[in-house]
């Protein structure tokens, strides 16, 4: 009965269930932010600033990636975690159907890079902050095309990017770090075999 096997990057059944259930929890907890988003968009529309509503809250929707990376500490965990979260969103009645999956992949890939650059060795505020930055850069590049951000004035592009990075740092690094500190201290993840 050899049970002290090397840390595995394979996704096990319970990892998939864990991340999916966690994503459903987040979907239900963040449901209220849908109204927040609509309210913000409405308020900003007359100013022509509607995209800011998206960028202010985007950090919430990209939390699943760093959280999964932290909980499972596997190569690819952020990408697959975010992809699962977007599948949850698409299935439980998200607004964008399958196009949610495309965004999910882009976001997950962005978060993943932060952990790749630290060679999957660091799971702390530094790697979370780096991951927030890579997520902001990658998703922003995608939105330059998909959401037409490239057409804006340069000052607006810069302001949108800064807003997005702050959102991703606050939710994806600060909040995720607070949650994972509680998890670490509870030792609840220790019993699970990788």
């Amino acid at each position: 009965m050899q049970q002290k096997a090397a840390h595995s990057n394979r996704w096990h059944l319970r990892d998939v269930i864990l991340i999916t259930i966690t994503s459903i929890f987040m979907g239900i907890i963040f449901f209220v932010t849908g109204f927040l988003y609509n309210g913000l968009t409405l308020a900003l529309t007359p100013l022509g600033m509607a995209p800011f509503a998206n960028d202010i809250l985007l950090g919430l929707w990209t939390m699943a990636g760093p959280l999964a990376a932290f909980m499972l500490q596997k190569v690819g965990a952020a990408t697959i975690g975010e992809l699962l979260a977007s599948a949850v969103e698409a299935i439980i009645g998200g607004q964008w159907g399958p196009s949610t999956l495309i965004s999910g992949f882009v976001q997950g890939f962005g978060s993943e890079l932060g952990f790749t650059f630290t060679l999957y060795r660091r799971y702390d505020m530094a790697s979370l902050s780096l991951s927030a930055l890579t997520t902001a850069i990658v998703t922003f590049a995608w939105d330059l095309v998909r959401s037409g951000y490239a057409a804006y004035h340069p000052w607006m592009i810069v302001a949108l990017f800064i807003t997005r990075f702050i959102s991703m740092w606050v939710f994806g690094a600060l909040l995720v770090s607070a949650v994972t500190k509680l998890l670490d201290r509870s030792h609840l993840l220790d019993r699970r075999h990788a």
């Binding site: 009965m1 049970q3 002290k4 319970r14 019993r191 699970r192 075999h193």
Partner: peptide
């Protein structure tokens, strides 16, 4: 111990180890 913990010794059903 597949899901949790560490075990030594053997458990058999029909003389075959379950693990």
């Amino acid at each position: 111990p597949a899901f949790m913990g560490e075990a030594t010794g053997t458990i058999t059903v029909n003389d075959q180890p379950v693990v």
